[in-house]
């Protein structure tokens, strides 16, 4: 049996594989259950960092600029992204407002911030410390709860429902959010958690 560092176990079925068997730049599937284990790509940390930075800035833009506006019968109403969330804030729906704000703004922002902190030492070729590991752990944990792309689909559905009723104008924040979704899909296919964890591991050398 090789050293433990060279082994990797499938997270879905616990089957052991040899890390060195994965060809450079290839995607590795578990030989037993087929789950994706590694997506190794050369120089991907630099790309992950730049995507995370751009996404972070787009998110800041999405909460700073006007989001959507409506007009009907001479009356108009505009809203920011956080204003959208706060529509829930009257009486019993307040917890829901907080949850929605977390799902579409605060969790995505925290996750991107943590990702930036985690991969920065890798890109700059510095020795990662425990802070960076904790940051990457947080980013991974928040991934399923970061729902900006689902929100965008929700916005599309809502707009179809009301276009008959009112006329809608799109603000800068809407386009920032749309851009963010494109970047996030791209980023998710590029990031390989095991490769990042190995790079963050300083106990090996």
């Amino acid at each position: 049996m090789g050293p433990l560092e060279d082994l990797i176990a499938c997270p879905h079925c616990d089957t052991l594989h040899n890390y060195s068997d994965v060809p450079e730049g290839a995607q590795a599937h578990c030989r037993k259950c087929g789950a994706v284990m590694l997506t190794q790509r050369a120089a991907s940390v630099a790309i992950v960092l730049s995507l995370a930075l751009s996404s972070f800035l787009l998110m800041i833009a999405a909460i700073s600029f006007p989001f959507l506006g409506v007009e009907a019968g001479g009356l108009s109403n505009g809203t920011s992204l956080l204003g959208t969330v706060m529509a829930f804030s009257d009486d019993y729906a307040l917890p829901l407002a907080i949850a929605v704000a977390a799902f579409i703004v605060f969790i995505p922002l925290t996750r991107l911030g943590a990702l930036i902190v985690a991969v920065t030492p890798l890109v700059l070729d510095r020795t990662p410390r425990s802070l960076h590991k904790r940051a990457f752990g947080l980013a991974e944990q928040l991934r399923p709860w970061s729902m900006a792309e689902i929100f965008v689909v929700g916005v599309a559905v809502a707009l179809v429902k009301i276009t008959a009723l009112v006329s809608v104008t799109y603000g800068l924040a809407f386009w920032a959010l749309a851009g963010l979704v494109v970047l996030s899909f791209w980023q998710d296919t590029l990031i390989c958690r095991y490769t990042v964890w190995r790079a963050l591991d300083t106990s090996r050398d």
């Binding site: 109403n77 969330v85 429902k161």
Partner: peptide, 11 residues
């Protein structure tokens, strides 16, 4: 949930 949030905010 997000559809409801957007509708409630806009309308």
């Amino acid at each position: 949930i997000f559809v409801v949030a957007v509708l409630a905010a806009l309308v």
